[in-house]
């Protein structure tokens, strides 16, 4: 156990990329000449591709996800001397159903462990967009909510207290009007802050499901934590098992799910440091 932790910590450094290179390769992402990888998630019709186009400009190309007939767009950009790759995930309302689109988005966030996941939401329909947002936050703790179409929200006389929302969700919330290219700089800054560790996400986790589910989840989570101590989202994995998700069942059986590492590398190295000084 200790040894495991040490070797794990041995690879850690300040500002190290958090993404999972072997898994990304399996997902068909080429990480040559790229420092960080960003995933773009969101409901359909939220202007996700406009945000994508704004960030990448002409440096993008489209292809298919490996083995699937779903188109994938990815592009690159540079910010603050770092080279970013950004992957546009299929637009979905949820990550819980069984459609191919949702499976792809889910797998990418879970197994690829992007350094930051940007969730693009339609400000005029925030409540329904929170469905996906909350689900993403169950899987990853490094996320940004990009409230797009703020101008449309204003037209519909909707005002959103973004500071409060950021506090509630525990992640940065950026106001944007992607079609006017507004908010893109703030988004980039925010991405940089998370990557550099200046902003620590404390994502909202749904902690009170029905008593019966909570009871089952706890029993299962204990077992999972015992076998895969480093897994950052064991609760979510337990939930997927209760839903009979074959992909998760397979990756538990093969142990592949153990390759998901904790994002909080700084915490880990701090622990080691404390141990050494004590």
């Amino acid at each position: 156990m200790n040894l495991n932790r040490l070797t794990h910590a041995g690879n850690q450094c300040e500002n190290c990329p958090a993404h999972n290179i072997p898994n990304l390769k399996k997902l068909g992402i080429n990480m040559d000449k790229v420092d960080q990888v960003i995933a773009l998630a969101g409901n359909p019709n939220t202007g996700k591709s406009t945000v994508f186009n704004n960030l990448t400009g002409l440096k993008q190309h489209t292809g298919n996800w490996p083995g699937k007939t779903v188109t994938r767009a990815e592009g690159t950009f540079e910010y603050n001397t770092k080279r970013f790759k950004i992957v546009d995930l299929p637009g979905t309302y949820s990550l819980l159903s069984t459609s191919t689109d949702e499976e792809i988005a889910r797998d990418f966030i879970l197994f690829g462990q992007p350094d930051v996941t940007v969730i693009v939401a339609d400000s005029t329909r925030l409540e329904r967009n929170l469905n996906l947002t909350l689900q993403v936050l169950e899987i990853t703790d490094r996320a940004i909510l990009c409230l797009n179409l703020m101008d449309e929200a204003a037209r519909h006389r909707i005002s959103i207290d973004t500071k409060q929302l950021s506090k509630e969700l525990g992640i940065p919330v950026i106001e944007a009007e992607a079609r006017q290219k507004k908010g893109m700089n703030e988004l980039l800054q925010s991405i940089d802050e998370i990557i550099s560790g200046r902003y620590k996400c404390k994502p909202f986790r749904m902690n009170k499901l029905s008593p019966q589910i909570e009871h089952s989840l706890k029993q299962l989570e204990v077992l999972i934590k015992k076998e895969f101590p480093n897994m950052p989202n064991s609760r979510w994995v337990a939930l997927r098992l209760l839903e009979g998700d074959q992909k998760i069942i397979d990756s538990i059986r093969s142990g592949e799910i153990g390759l998901i590492h904790s994002y909080n590398q700084n915490d880990l190295s701090n622990n080691i440091y404390e141990k050494n000084t004590v």
Partner: peptide
């Protein structure tokens, strides 16, 4: 149940941050 819970959280959060004139 799960979806019902998620939407319940979503409603709670948005009731605190959204104001419609």
């Amino acid at each position: 149940n799960l979806l019902e819970s998620i939407y319940k959280f979503a409603t709670e959060i948005s009731s605190r941050v959204i104001a419609v004139d």
